[in-house]
Design a binder for these strands. Sequence first.
DNA 1: TATTGTTTGTGAATGTGAGTACAAATATCA
DNA 2: TGATATTTGTACTCACATTCACAAACAATA
Lengths: 216, 216
Amino acid sequence: MNVSTNIKIDEDMKYHKIPDETIRRMPMYLRALSLLEQDACQTISSRQLAQQLHLNPPQIRKDLSYFGAFGKRGIGYPVQSTVQQIRKILKLDGTQSAALIGAGRLGTAIAAYPGFSVFGFEVASIFDIAPKKIGKKIGAMTVEDAADLDTLKKRKIRLAILAVPAEAAQSCAEALVQAGVKGILNLSPSCLAVPRRVKVVTIDIAMALGVLPYYM
Amino acid sequence: MNVSTNIKIDEDMKYHKIPDETIRRMPMYLRALSLLEQDACQTISSRQLAQQLHLNPPQIRKDLSYFGAFGKRGIGYPVQSTVQQIRKILKLDGTQSAALIGAGRLGTAIAAYPGFSVFGFEVASIFDIAPKKIGKKIGAMTVEDAADLDTLKKRKIRLAILAVPAEAAQSCAEALVQAGVKGILNLSPSCLAVPRRVKVVTIDIAMALGVLPYYM
DNA sequence: TATTGTTTGTGAATGTGAGTACAAATATCA
DNA sequence: TGATATTTGTACTCACATTCACAAACAATA
């Protein structure tokens, strides 16, 4: 029933479907290795790294091996070049500009958050719908009118952070998709409906808190 | 185990090991059903709920059935009583007081976040280490000295939200454990080491953003 | 050089979760 | 009442993810 070319390509290119869970862990590795790089650490073994991240060594080795053989047997992984490799894999080499939607308390906190730089992200512009907030300064940026979201296309910004109330999230998401955005980090407690080509990651703080009492 | 909780639920929990993924989804169901309850919706089918949450109907049925048979065949799930059941399961009946550590921008945003009330959470007190911030008013609360974290034991607060820089996170976590805290929502990009009896959930915003370019 | 100790990369085994299919239960309507 | 449509609960199957176990590769040292 299936096409033989697919199989052949799979064999020839040693194609493996990379688990989503592996992708989810890659930024962990990138951050940890970046810190080690700053400390002038040359190499690190999967055992040491696993200790830091509370993971099992074989997990780390398998994750990294999906993308090639970065390590050296008897030695470990070379910190600097592995950082570069992971950056390439995650498409985080070079600066990634992101638009921030929502200039409320959460949006303001996100705009000032220093933790994005490890991954090469920068918040390039801030939007809000409230006339009171438009024109206001947040750090070095001026809040723009959310009605002008379509300018993102010209500016080639394809990444957005959505920090608006749940009621506004879906309509914002649609405007972002219209503006050519390809990835959305949704910080509102809502389930966004977007075309399949657009990737959404939702962080719901209250929901994360919601599981804690169960385990206590 | 606790004898005062619903006996039937405890019995069911003995015989089935409930998947962590199921627990993770329960707050989703709780939120969605709470909204439906506000709209005076009497019952909802797994199909309708799945459509809202972008899940498969059998997934929802299986998740709920771990805790008993809440639904009625041919009808669906009674909204009101299922909400109450899930609250009981997640130990979210009654108000859950949480301490917020860190009165920076993110902490301030968290303190004012309205989304906790659906689950019965309330931020009961705010702590910081910076002398400048101690004594400051945030909403109706006064920022307390993080050196006094041990007062949480007396106040019987067993839940904490950690909104401090990564460098301070581990020492804060240790102080919280010392103060009898049993669950920590960690909002810093750090991997906390705590005794096994303490449950930690970490939300790393930059890391969540870090996977997006890969999929674009 | 030979030996010992360390570490990676990976096939195999194990464990966990998701999807499918269907019987049982209920409502609706002719 | 009988027939049809709807929906739950669950056994079974399949897919995905983690862990184990070990050969291959390298360093260090005598």
